[in-house]
Nucleic acid binder design. Structure first.
Lengths: 152, 152
DNA sequence: TATCAATCTACCTTCTAAGTAGACTAAAGG
DNA sequence: CCTTTAGTCTACTTAGAAGGTAGATTGATA
């Protein structure tokens, strides 16, 4: 399960991605718009900034902005920052592999063999989709939703 | 991430699957063989029994056994018993769907759209593989491992 | 220099994972 | 029927993380 932190991080980044190239966005505004607890959001944005995804400006006219184009930020990157490795088992993690102490032989662990498949499938999805892709899929869904609404 | 509980549950079931049709296995033996804390394993096996995957016998000659054939128990079933839903977001869970309170419109939530793909991919894997399949993959890996060993 | 807005430090509360301890109950076997 | 064996139940414990909150500080702008 994704944590609230990761959920909030993605929502905030999508919000900022939509306003990419425009004026900085205030934490307070973002918190209200996306219904995220403000103080919690503060710490999340700070962490995203420390990982290079965001830039900030203090004082009047300040706020947060993406530090690169939305098509250069993959969902997987965001999830890893907020929640850590994507793998369902540390012994199949690419980014932070760790051996299971109790496992006598990794190569022949039945659980590991299958969980490796799960990791690969998940990584293929989340590393293959950027913030820009997500916005496009949202827009398509909005158009689709609007379209059907008219005919109900 | 899978919890230790789920990991232990799967390992225990694989152990029992290998001995399917033979005498019951003692909790203590299983704990030693698979290096699982005995008292913790007790509670896990009991839960698996309460969900119908195992049967037990008390007293001398007692122990635990699978209650059905290893090809009728899917990995996904085990994981759901131990850890709950497989979905990375409760709003994309099939088995225990729950709405995100803060989400104004589920159908156009960018995160949800992608996470639905992740859920489906994961479910396809874990629900598509049985204990029997896993044993077969382990055996294949053992043969593969042995094979290469000779030539190194 | 006032005010705006991000940042830092420190704390809090609740929940869950991962167990442990020990009494209880059922089934064989003699 | 009583002893041993082995699963079952109840009740803790402990550590750590999730999910925040409060308030002081720093830096930029006007």
């Amino acid at each position: 399960m994704l944590s609230n932190k990761a959920k909030y991080a993605v929502k905030a980044l999508l919000y900022l991605a939509r306003r990419h190239g425009k004026d900085p966005v205030l934490i307070g505004d973002l918190a209200v718009e996306e219904r995220i607890p403000k103080k919690f959001l503060e710490s999340i944005l700070l962490e995203l900034k420390n990982h290079g995804l965001l830039q900030s400006k203090k004082g009047k006219g300040g706020g947060y902005q993406l530090s690169k184009n939305p098509d250069l930020i993959a969902l997987g990157e965001v999830i890893r920052i907020a929640d850590g490795p994507i793998a369902p088992l540390s012994c199949v993690s690419q980014s932070s592999y760790q051996r299971c102490e109790e496992c006598p032989d990794e190569a022949t662990c039945g659980l590991r063999i299958v969980m490796k498949d799960v990791r690969d499938a998940t990584a293929r999805i989340v590393d293959g989709v950027s913030l820009k892709d997500m916005l496009e899929r949202v827009d398509a869904a909005v158009r689709g939703g609007k379209g059907t609404m008219y005919y109900i």
